[in-house]
Design a protein around this nucleic acid. Structure first.
Lengths: 209, 209
DNA sequence: TTGTATAGATCTACACTGTAGAGGTGCCCG
DNA sequence: CGGGCACCTCTACAGTGTAGATCTATACAA
């Protein structure tokens, strides 16, 4: 009965819908049908379609929040947040792209950012640089999963040989030199972890404890 | 008369439209009207709407390509590509988001990636790591501009004081400690450049020449 | 019990989207 | 003159978000 419950129910259904049929499948009518209700019945609860998508962003961030309450070294905590982001992306690949496209201003979002700020401060990043570095890291984490989900990575590497073959070898010398490596299909989990490790290494190199 | 010309004309108009009215303003009918033609007249040239958007991706990459032919140290070349990406994002903020969402397999895209591969190899990145590092860097560059264009960054910082005020100070200790820094409005150009520099520094730290 | 206020859902309608399918229209070559 | 051909237009349809009016059921007052 309380309106927040109803809203949460709607967002849950919307997220499920996004997981099943992609973001374009999240239509007011489809969502309403899933809830046994008319499309127009949703409006009082979510505002409009934009409000619905903003709500999805918040829902996902809330889902990620438990990963923040981990303890350990700052490095471990940053890695935990990074991994949580990736798992979220894996669970909701379509909806995840919204995180890059919409600002998040919900209390849970602030708490999440605060945890990252805290870890960076502990690592010795100077105060004036902390917000920038936080944006650097989260931009990468969000962009990575988004690229993966949308096929920016894989579509290019599905058939690298064919793609290279279009070129006279001299025009793309680096591709030629890397041909053996490029034919391997990457392990995205391992790659993401290696990237996070490299970013951490960058922090330590830049601001040694 | 040649079809490629017509296609280029269409893509130019589409990009212009995106710049003026945003991506949602790029509708078949609006685009057609801009060209003094019916919506259906576009289809033989661009396939369908998805084809149009893919075409936009290619057009933008082509626009970026001149930055690749710069010479200098590998660091300088990488920075040049990074800056070119940012300028592109500045010129076409709405359309730029497409780069993260769609794979690019056009010849120009391969040439661009090849230039980055080459710079990384020269920097001493081992062959087996080059593709991963390329993805790391481009993911960041694309994600940054995308975040900026969509307001992921700014919307959160427009009124940081107000946002922090919702919380008991103990719940977001890092925000509290950083309050002075957070009130400053960032210089995004400088921030992006600092980020690129940090990434370069990471490469040098990881694989010293 | 009845009357009424109120919060919610529904119904209808509108402007807009991408695009299938059928029908022109004008030009070039025989 | 008559095809053939490449291009464009017209009409139509299913689907989108949502404004506005209407209905309904529940809660409370007399």
């Amino acid at each position: 009965m309380p309106d927040d419950d109803r809203k949460r129910r709607i967002l849950d259904a919307a997220l499920e819908l996004a997981d099943e049929r992609g973001l374009t499948g999240v239509t007011m009518r489809a969502l309403a049908q899933k809830l046994g209700v008319t499309a127009m019945a949703l409006y009082p609860h979510i505002g409009d379609k934009d409000g619905l998508l903003d709500g999805l962003v918040d829902r996902m961030l809330a889902e990620m929040l438990p990963a923040v309450t981990v303890d350990g070294t700052p490095e471990e905590r940053l890695m935990a947040v990074g991994q949580a982001a990736r798992e979220l992306a894996r669970r909701h690949p379509s909806a995840y792209a919204l995180l890059l496209a919409r600002p998040a201003v919900t209390p849970d979002a602030v708490r999440l950012v605060d945890a990252i700020y805290g870890a960076l401060l502990e690592l010795g990043v100077p105060e004036s640089e902390v917000p920038r570095v936080e944006r650097l890291i989260t931009t990468f984490a969000l962009g990575y999963a988004s690229s993966e989900a949308n096929g920016r990575f894989s579509a290019g590497t599905i058939n690298p040989r064919g793609r290279r073959a279009q070129f006279p070898a001299e025009e793309v010398p680096a591709h030629r030199r890397l041909s053996e490596v490029l034919d391997r299909i990457p392990d995205w989990d391992a790659e993401y972890e290696a990237d996070l490790q490299d970013l951490l290494l960058m922090l330590r190199a830049r601001w040694p404890a």
